[in-house]
Simulated scan of single mutants.
Amino acid sequence: MNVVWNPVDPGLWPSFHASGRGAMQQAWAYGEALKAMDVVIHRAMVWEGERLVAVAQFMCRRVLGYLSVASCTRGPVWASDVGTDERQQVYVLLRRSLPIARLKVVLFSPDLALDEAQELKGLVRVMSGYSTVLLDLTKPLPTLKAALDGKWRNRLVKVLGHEKIRFHVQPSRKKCDWLLGKEVDQREAKKFHGLPVEFVSHYIHATADPAQAFAVAYAELGKNTIAAMLFLVHGRVASYHMGWADAEGRQLNAHNALLWQAMAYFQDHQIEVLDLGGVNTHDLPGISRFKLGTGGEVLTLAGTYF
């Protein structure tokens, strides 16, 4: 096998990533957005002759001034026919050839469940994985609706029947910027952190067709927007990124309708999976119950390996 490090083919990467239903953290636009914020990114393409076996994107930083730490989050992304033995070889090749300083720590947080982690033999698990909820949008909407938790579905029916609320899902930059402003406000009020809000603009800018990079779902009541959700698109997958609602939006359960409308929108745009992001019933019980109520598949990732 042969590992080709940066530069790699920026045209081939997105198509390979899409075919493997790669996570957002391995998307080309994700890396470009971080680079725009001065994060060091290294990309690798692994070849077996003329066959592309895997792609891997690493986020890198210096620690203590002399130690290089590189993290491959929810990667590599694999070709569909790559077996366990080949994958084990790839991990070794990537770690050995990563073009950073000799004193280095290379971490892999693969996009697979713990019971599927045979390929990580020889690596040491240093951190447990987080859980996310995945919705299979290849299923018909009636099937998805039947899978909803009963209370979740009742709230959905009720809010969709509200005669005065208007729901929209579209790639509106104006609405996206407005929602990012709301995100800044709620971060300050609730004292929580996440990716810098400017990441979103960089991500959209780095996508070949910005209109296909994101979608904002929002609910209007009269002249007021009472709730909104932002999704980022990468290949055949869309990932929930942030949401906001005022008191009225929360009381009316507007997010139930917004997520449902987004599911229909993404189906129309040939998106196959909706990744709702992390669930943590201990620290974030409300939003976790909301995500789990969709009836999606709960995927607990294997963790981080050294």
Score class of each variant (00 low, 15 high):
42 H>V: 13
172 S>I: 05
5 W>T: 03
101 A>P: 14
110 P>A: 09
78 W>M: 03
251 Q>K: 11
80 S>T: 13
247 A>G: 12
148 L>C: 03
280 N>V: 02
205 H>N: 03
189 A>I: 15
8 V>A: 15
122 G>K: 15
207 T>G: 02
254 A>I: 12
142 P>G: 05
120 L>I: 15
38 D>R: 13
168 H>N: 09
57 Q>W: 05
224 N>S: 08
261 Q>D: 04
256 N>D: 13
279 V>D: 03
137 L>P: 01
157 V>F: 11
98 L>D: 04
50 E>P: 07
202 H>T: 11
148 L>F: 05
282 H>V: 10
165 I>Q: 07
67 L>A: 08
127 M>E: 10
124 V>T: 06
81 D>M: 06
253 N>D: 06
188 E>I: 02
69 V>G: 00
256 N>L: 13
178 W>N: 06
244 W>V: 01
132 T>K: 11
206 A>G: 03
242 M>H: 04
217 A>Y: 04
237 V>K: 13
288 S>M: 09
95 R>D: 10
18 A>S: 07
260 W>C: 08
229 M>C: 00
57 Q>N: 04
126 V>F: 01
42 H>Y: 14
119 E>K: 14
215 A>P: 04
14 P>F: 08
167 F>C: 03
91 Y>R: 10
167 F>G: 02
189 A>E: 15
276 L>V: 11
158 K>T: 01
139 K>L: 15
142 P>L: 05
91 Y>F: 13
265 Y>D: 05
21 R>A: 02
286 G>T: 14
244 W>C: 04
211 A>K: 02
71 S>I: 03
168 H>I: 08
55 V>E: 05
